[in-house]
Amino acid sequence: MRPLLPLITAFLLAYLFAGRAGFLGGVLILVSVVFLGLLISALSGPELVELSDSFGEIAGRIKNLVRRAGLRGVSVYVLEDYLPNAYSTGKKVILSLGLFEVLDEDEVLGVVAHELGHIRNRDTLLFPLLAYFRIFAFVFPFVMWAFTGSFLAFLLYMTLYIWFEAERSRFLKGREFRADDFAVRILDVPMSLKYALEELKNYEDLMVRVKKGINPGIEPKIERHGRGRTYRKPGIVFFPTHPSYEERIFRIVPLLEELRSRA
């Protein structure tokens, strides 16, 4: 895991700058951040409804998909939110209610398969840890500045933080691709993930246009004018954690071709 390299370097430098106290101080801060993070995530969370048989045929199809993924103890929940969204945590897959409105059944299964890919690849354990490490990597430069009184040490640690961000971004994007790879292998209709991504891309593009008020009478066409800002993303993202929809679709297409030629 390359994101660990800047952290290991930070601990080595802490030992060089402040000896054993610096090193142990770093360990203490890291453990505290992880502990607090776990505590907060255990105590908070949105209200979820378990996807039961009352949801109709799709509930059975999702159960089959989980079985095909070779996973046990996975539960699927629905979150009351009109924006289409899906994520996984631990062994839970959470789908927003808006997702069912925007995608058809096969496409929802495509999204679930992607989330199952995250669970299968243990990303649901790794991602929170990386989030805690990120807080540590940001806080530690200030702690070391206060501890050593050296602005040079602070600048050095901030450089390590930027290095960590770059590695984290690359790592997380790679995990998204891996989850996609897993998804297309377990889907009855492998193309459904591609269709889901296209629909979600369309959603984001239209939301931007609606919010900007560019075209209030949106016509049912996909017109993409360059790479504008996308919905729910700030204009400047130095270290994106997710590949763009285009990047994902671009990778899925040859993978589908490969799977088809093998079949």
Partner: peptide
């Protein structure tokens, strides 16, 4: 596209012409 209709219906909710609610009937939540 489905997404177009979803966005426009939510926009009509914002305009006050439609209202959105969760139905817990047969077929699950929607």
């Amino acid at each position: 596209r489905r997404s177009t209709i979803s966005i426009l219906m939510n926009r009509l909710c914002d305009k006050g012409l439609l209202s959105r609610s969760v139905d817990h009937g047969r077929g699950g939540m929607r």
